[in-house]
Amino acid sequence: MINKDMTIGEILDINFKAAEVLMSFGMGCLGCPSARVESLEQACSIHGLNLDDVVEKLNNL
């Protein structure tokens, strides 16, 4: 189960299809070094996204 404290890297390692979901929310820089260590909560904050919406979509993959 994906949660807000997981890094983007961990999420992508669990399910490569998560990249499509994250990109659909406007997170286009998934390959940048900071994305590998940034938490999902941090990424959502930076991109102005609703964290709960993103977590729900990722967990419905």
Rank of each mutant, 00 (worst) to 15 (best):
residue 37 V to D: 01
residue 5 D to K: 14
residue 20 E to I: 10
residue 37 V to Y: 04
residue 9 G to V: 00
residue 25 F to G: 02
residue 23 M to L: 14
residue 20 E to S: 08
residue 5 D to I: 11
residue 24 S to R: 11
residue 41 E to C: 04
residue 50 N to D: 09
residue 10 E to T: 00
residue 56 E to D: 13
residue 45 S to C: 15
residue 43 A to S: 00
residue 53 D to A: 12
residue 2 I to Q: 08
residue 48 G to A: 08
residue 42 Q to G: 11
residue 58 L to F: 07
residue 37 V to K: 03
residue 2 I to R: 07
residue 12 L to S: 03
residue 54 V to E: 10
residue 12 L to V: 08
residue 21 V to G: 04
residue 32 C to A: 03
residue 47 H to E: 01
residue 11 I to S: 14
residue 8 I to G: 01
residue 4 K to Y: 04
residue 25 F to A: 01
residue 14 I to V: 12
residue 1 M to T: 11
residue 25 F to S: 02
residue 14 I to E: 08
residue 38 E to K: 10
residue 1 M to K: 13
residue 54 V to R: 06
residue 4 K to P: 04
residue 44 C to P: 13
residue 24 S to Q: 05
residue 61 L to A: 03
residue 52 D to L: 08
residue 5 D to W: 10
residue 12 L to F: 08
residue 13 D to N: 05
residue 7 T to I: 00
residue 46 I to C: 14
residue 2 I to K: 10
residue 52 D to K: 09
residue 19 A to S: 02
residue 35 A to E: 11
residue 16 F to S: 11
residue 22 L to P: 00
residue 36 R to W: 15
residue 57 K to S: 08
residue 22 L to S: 01
residue 33 P to Y: 10
residue 58 L to S: 10
residue 29 C to P: 03
residue 51 L to C: 04
residue 49 L to T: 04
residue 36 R to L: 10
residue 5 D to V: 05
residue 5 D to R: 14
residue 53 D to W: 02
residue 16 F to C: 07
residue 4 K to Q: 11
residue 10 E to P: 01
residue 57 K to P: 06
residue 8 I to D: 00
residue 54 V to K: 11
residue 38 E to F: 08
residue 25 F to V: 01
residue 41 E to N: 07
residue 59 N to H: 12
residue 21 V to Q: 00
residue 12 L to Q: 12
residue 40 L to R: 14
residue 20 E to R: 04
residue 9 G to W: 02
residue 24 S to D: 10
residue 42 Q to C: 08
residue 48 G to T: 06
residue 46 I to R: 15
residue 60 N to K: 15
residue 5 D to A: 15
residue 13 D to R: 07
residue 51 L to H: 04
residue 29 C to S: 01
residue 32 C to Y: 02
residue 26 G to P: 02
residue 34 S to D: 09
residue 17 K to C: 00
residue 53 D to P: 07
residue 29 C to Y: 05
residue 53 D to G: 09
residue 59 N to F: 07
residue 1 M to R: 12
residue 7 T to G: 01
residue 36 R to V: 12
residue 50 N to Q: 03
residue 5 D to S: 15
residue 20 E to H: 07
residue 56 E to W: 13
residue 38 E to M: 13
residue 17 K to L: 05
residue 61 L to V: 03
residue 14 I to S: 05
residue 26 G to H: 02
